[in-house]
Amino acid sequence: MLIGYARVSTAAQDLTVQQRRLLELGVTEDRIYVDHGLTGTNRARPGLEQALAACREGDQLVVPKLDRLARSVPDARSICDQLTSDGIVLNLGGSVHDPKDPVGRLLFNALAMVAEFEADLIKLRTREGMALARERGRLKGRKPKLSPRQEAHLVKLFKEGEHSVAELAELFGVARATVYRAVERSMESGV
């Protein structure tokens, strides 16, 4: 049986091309598992876990490209080793990977290295872009959950001691960590 897996990193991306390719490779629509908006560097992906769980000995896990399966050499090897030990064949865009073939292993590792390199380049470009935006004053971080006036009121109520942190968090519609940070900021500023 053919089990397909497709992944895109952001919610804005589309899976259509990958799903179409999987259908062309013989995977039925009901056997395609997807992860939408999850990076390949994160191994905890529900769609991947479902695809791996659906595979039985003798089945093929079909992915359009190796970088859709993993974005690091250790992760790609780990998944491949798991598949091999379970008697499942890995199909990369129509090419069946044979882990016993030295040339196949070499090509697999080279593809995994390229996928990891691409992920590293994306991170580098993102950091550079954020630094440039910060330099130009366009990247200022997240908007605060509380206005200065709300934060002052929250701190005042906290210092009065009549409300617990959990109550204040619920009252202001924020997480408890936000309450703790507001109190900490007020102590640092001496208010």
Rank of each mutant, 00 (worst) to 15 (best):
P99A: 09
P99M: 01
K100H: 12
K100R: 14
K100F: 07
D101H: 06
V103A: 10
L107C: 06
L107A: 11
N109W: 04
N109S: 11
N109M: 00
A110N: 14
A110D: 12
L111C: 03
A112T: 09
A112F: 01
A112E: 11
A112H: 09
M113G: 15
V114S: 03
V114G: 02
E116I: 03
E116L: 01
E116G: 01
F117T: 13
A119Y: 04
D120A: 13
L121W: 06
L121R: 08
L121S: 08
I122K: 05
K123N: 13
K123G: 07
L124D: 15
T126F: 07
T126I: 13
T126K: 08
E128P: 03
L132E: 14
L132M: 10
L132K: 01
L132D: 11
E135R: 01
R136Q: 15
R136K: 15
L139I: 08
K140F: 00
G141N: 08
P144L: 14
L146K: 03
L146I: 03
S147T: 15
R149V: 13
E151K: 00
E151T: 08
E151F: 01
E151L: 04
H153T: 08
K156G: 01
L157F: 02
L157Y: 00
L157T: 04
F158N: 00
F158C: 08
E160C: 07
G161P: 00
E162F: 05
V165S: 01
A166F: 05
E170C: 00
L171M: 10
L171K: 12
F172Y: 08
F172A: 01
F172V: 03
V174S: 05
A175F: 07
A177C: 05
A177Q: 10
V179F: 04
V179S: 00
Y180P: 06
A182H: 09
A182R: 01
V183H: 02
V183T: 12
E184H: 04
R185K: 15
M187I: 12
